[in-house]
């Protein structure tokens, strides 16, 4: 029972945390409580899936955790940094250096080639990045021969893989992905998910992914269920069947 020692120790294994995070949109009668005092921790090297019905606050959580938006109450921490203490500029730098983000679509700058998109955060920082690491990421995308192509010359799946590669390339503390497979067919989705899983297993990345698809969520180490801005349930080592069962149970 040496657990007490562990509890007292600083939680170095948390890549990102939300503490009593609340997000309210609007005010008065029209106010919407998109996040309702959420406590959640994303462990380093873990792949977490977030699921929940439409409008449950999944995207809001992603945005607040990634420093794209600020919570109304409570705290969001990336590593040990409390985002609410950061200025607008520092928040931007944090996004650039410590956080990766993958959207459902339109992830790439159309005027830049695939490799330029991958290098974008590092180029913005004016740093070369870790070349070996970037090489590893690039070869993992399987797009080595298409690096000089512009986004318009790539398929949707290829574009998403480039987007994930960009999120990975800067070795951020955590990567948030909001329905990264929402816009592609099943096979392509599997391709992208394989790539993400690989990044966690082989490269030790921390990834949080929103999805509606039980199949996709089953790639994760853990599934968190969100309803009405609250975390209602959690599932470790999920399988598609268990996830579906849970979803039905939640009535979503």
């Amino acid at each position: 029972m040496s657990d007490s020692a562990t509890v007292a120790a600083p939680p170095t294994h948390a890549a990102a945390r939300a503490v009593a995070a609340t997000k309210i949109y609007g005010s008065g009668d029209t106010a919407v409580r998109a996040l309702d005092a959420i406590d959640v921790t994303f462990e380093q090297g873990q792949f977490t899936a977030i699921m929940g019905p439409s409008g449950s606050g999944k995207s809001t959580l992603m945005h607040c955790m990634a420093g794209l938006d600020r919570v109304t109450e409570g705290q969001v921490l990336i590593g040990e940094i409390d985002l609410s203490t950061l200025s607008e500029r520092d928040l931007t730098l944090l996004r650039r250096d410590n956080v990766g983000f993958v959207f459902q679509a339109f992830n790439l700058v159309p005027t830049l080639t695939a490799i330029e998109n991958i290098m974008l955060p590092m180029d913005l920082a004016g740093s070369a990045g870790d070349t070996d690491w970037v090489d590893e990421v690039v070869s993992a995308t399987g797009l080595a021969d298409r690096l000089k192509h512009r986004p318009s010359e790539l398929s949707g799946g290829q574009q998403q893989r480039v987007a994930v590669a960009r999120a990975l390339a800067g070795q951020p503390q955590v990567i948030f992905a909001d329905e990264p497979t929402g816009n592609v067919d099943l096979n392509t989705g599997a391709e992208i998910l394989g790539f993400i899983r690989n990044a966690v297993d082989e490269m030790g990345q921390t990834i949080v992914m929103v999805t509606h698809d039980a199949m996709a969520a089953s790639y994760a180490d853990r599934v968190v269920f969100l309803v009405d801005g609250k975390i209602v349930d959690e599932l470790v080592d999920p399988t598609p069947e268990r996830i579906r069962a849970h979803m039905n149970q939640l009535g979503a």
Partner: peptide, 16 residues
């Protein structure tokens, strides 16, 4: 607009 949002999201500062 969208592209600018993306650039800002991945860490482009306002100044840049």
């Amino acid at each position: 607009t969208r592209e600018i949002g993306l650039l800002r999201a991945v860490g482009m500062t306002r100044r840049q």
